[in-house]
Design a protein around this nucleic acid. Structure first.
Lengths: 190, 190
DNA sequence: ACCTGAACACCGTTCAAGT
DNA sequence: ACCTGAACACCGTTCAAGT
């Protein structure tokens, strides 16, 4: 990678971080190139798709989320670990508005630049969920995909101006519902 | 209203129904006008904003949803009524993809053409919720806004291709969590 | 009264031309 | 190798001109 290319790449990323923080994942790519003082084609050369740009922006955060899952797996009780991670995952989506839509689409599309990172996060969450389920601490009728769907659903709530004030409360609500056994099935394992 | 205007109005509405069913609430207005064989300005004359167009498309459905709430209030037990209505509300959002985003925005904006219909639906849901809460059948720490947020959240799940298959299951999950008392608070009213 | 479509200011995406 | 920006095909929104 030539020196000028390297410089353009990192500067584009920095500008994109600002613009997308402010305007969400549907921010104008033209605007990003303009603010970076770079030709539009240069942005497309470095990031052939919008997903590719967001993948570069999110990779570190998604990796961190995966790492945190492993950490919690050894450091906390299964129920606390699951709920803590769940909260952190919803919090993470706060970084760029609309990011969960992109992640949901990426899960369905193996060709998306975000696909790998997203499935990794899903697996990390699924492991925490299974650990809690094995101890009878979480509902048995949920899987890793459900966990991610709930994270996305709560991120959606948080993204809506009118619902945002209640988002934290609904996170508590759903987190406790994940841990609660089904009503009527009083039986617990062990 | 002149005869030609009346005809354009209803034809535009019919075409919009088709196009928005297929492409969601962000469908191209130009495309709608084109397919209706009408000048672009004519669409804007009848529906000055996108919300105005959707309000015309949704009013009947939203009114029906409000009516159903009243009906269920007299016909079913408080818990069944609440859960049935909740399911119907999520089902309603299936009509046009992305419609919940518009509704959430309308709740926050009193000037939106959709504002009145949305607050009416919220009130209808809140009444069903309060009725169930009064009998100790629903969690006391939820309000009408929470109920709508949960409906929107589940509609979001359903809108995502990758999560849609689990949507029905998550609706069951959340519906039962609404009815379940808080873990630890074994006390029930009456 | 009502309709029309050009005009304006934006997009995303591609690609020939430059260095 | 890499960068540039014009070109193309789209938007939403407005509004002078027509009937």
């Amino acid at each position: 990678m030539r020196a000028d290319a390297r410089k353009n790449y990192s500067h584009l990323l920095a500008v994109a971080r600002d613009v997308i923080s402010e305007h969400g994942v549907d921010a104008s790519l033209r605007d990003i190139a303009r603010k970076a003082g770079v030709g539009l084609g240069t942005l497309y050369r470095h990031f052939p798709t919008r997903e590719a740009l967001l993948e570069a922006l999110l990779r570190a955060n998604l990796d961190e989320l995966t790492r945190r899952a492993s950490e919690l797996e050894t450091m906390s009780s299964p129920d606390d670990a699951l709920v803590s991670w769940f909260r952190e995952a919803v919090g993470f989506t706060h970084s760029y508005s609309g990011v969960v839509n992109l992640m949901a689409a990426a899960l369905a599309d193996p060709d998306s630049a975000l696909h790998a990172s997203c499935t990794t996060v899903r697996s990390a969450g699924a492991r925490l969920l299974q650990r809690a389920q094995a101890e009878g601490m979480a509902r048995a009728d949920l899987d890793g995909a459900d966990l991610l769907a709930l994270i996305g659903a709560l991120a959606w709530v948080r993204d809506q101006f009118s619902f945002a004030p209640r988002a934290d409360h609904l996170i508590d609500f759903i987190a406790s519902a994940i841990l609660t056994e089904r009503p009527g099935s009083g039986a617990t394992k062990r």
